Simulated scan of single mutants.
Amino acid sequence: MIEYVNQLGGGAPRTGAAPGAAAAAVWSLDTTLDVVGGHPVGAAAAVLDAAERQRAEALLRPADRQRYLASHLGLRVLLGGYLGLAPQEVVLVREDCPGCGGPHGRPAVAGGGVHFSLSHSGNLAYLAFAGVPVGVDVEEVPGAEAVADVLPLLHPAETAELGALPDPDRRPGLARVWARKEACLKATGAGLANGLADPYVGSAPTPASVPGWTLTDLPAPAGYAAALAVATGRPGAGVS
């Protein structure tokens, strides 16, 4: 079951208990907001940890810094609500990388309690929470140049499917495929280290079946595509 909450705004959200193993909660956020979950974005340094503050300070463009601060502030507000903690009390860690074993895998809450995933594109962020590994992705519809660059890197069947589409449909089609693929790769923690070919997610209106995962397209505003991957079966099931 997916509980899709339309938007996290400026007021304090009502989250309740963390989602169970058979459920996922997804929130969207306008990252241009000045206040997120009752906390001013301009005072986010008081809520974020040292690593998050360092990452924000390294972003040179004010718009990029605003998006990062707003989305991570929203993440902490929602995690705190699910865990019964103040946002600044949530301790974030990195799991081991599934490829090399280094400490740069999926972001996680220290001690567990809830799995989460965060994605942002343009001025929109999506945040997903579940009792099992979860990945969410939102993508702004890319330009024609990005389509030409990415198309050959996908699964051969996806490249063929998108290549067969009329030009006006190819860009939103790629956004749909990219969001589905990124949701799966974020859920496993593999990221883009092994390229974009696998898993095959398809470009049809309904995602392809991905073993070990429930892959679902999410509602998104015009000009965006979004998708969610939630583990099925054993909690650590991966993409094959």
Rank of each mutant, 00 (worst) to 15 (best):
P207K: 02
G9F: 10
L228I: 08
L75D: 01
E158Y: 11
L124K: 01
C184G: 06
A25M: 09
D30C: 12
P87E: 04
M1R: 07
V138F: 12
G131L: 03
A45P: 09
A175F: 11
V132M: 04
I2E: 04
F116E: 01
R76M: 06
D137F: 13
V134D: 01
V26Q: 01
Q7M: 12
R61P: 04
G84V: 07
L83D: 01
G99I: 13
A110S: 13
G81N: 03
A187S: 11
S121A: 14
D149E: 15
A25K: 04
G105N: 09
G233T: 09
A225F: 09
A148Q: 14
V132D: 00
V201Y: 08
P107T: 00
A23P: 05
E95A: 15
A164G: 15
A56I: 06
G11Q: 13
A197I: 06
G111E: 06
G105T: 07
T232A: 12
A193V: 13
R14K: 03
A25R: 14
A157H: 12
L162F: 13
G16L: 11
D30I: 12
D96E: 13
S117G: 14
G101M: 11
A148R: 15
L83W: 05
A63Q: 15
E140M: 13
D96N: 07
G84M: 04
L85R: 14
G113A: 08
A144N: 04
A25P: 01
L75Q: 05
R53K: 05
R171Q: 14
P13Y: 03
E52S: 05
V77I: 08
G74H: 07
T15I: 14
P40Y: 02
T32Y: 03
V114D: 02
G38R: 07
W213S: 02
G135L: 08
P156K: 01
L174R: 07
W27E: 01
V150N: 00
A226T: 02
H39C: 12
P107R: 01
E95M: 12
A125N: 05
A179L: 12
R55L: 10
A229N: 07
K186L: 10
G163F: 14
L92R: 14
P13K: 00
Y224L: 10
P152E: 01
P168E: 02
D217A: 05
G42H: 06
V91D: 08
G16Q: 08
E145I: 04
P199N: 05
G111D: 08
A130W: 02
A144D: 15
G81W: 01
A128F: 11
V239P: 09
P107K: 00
G37V: 11
A187E: 06
V93K: 04
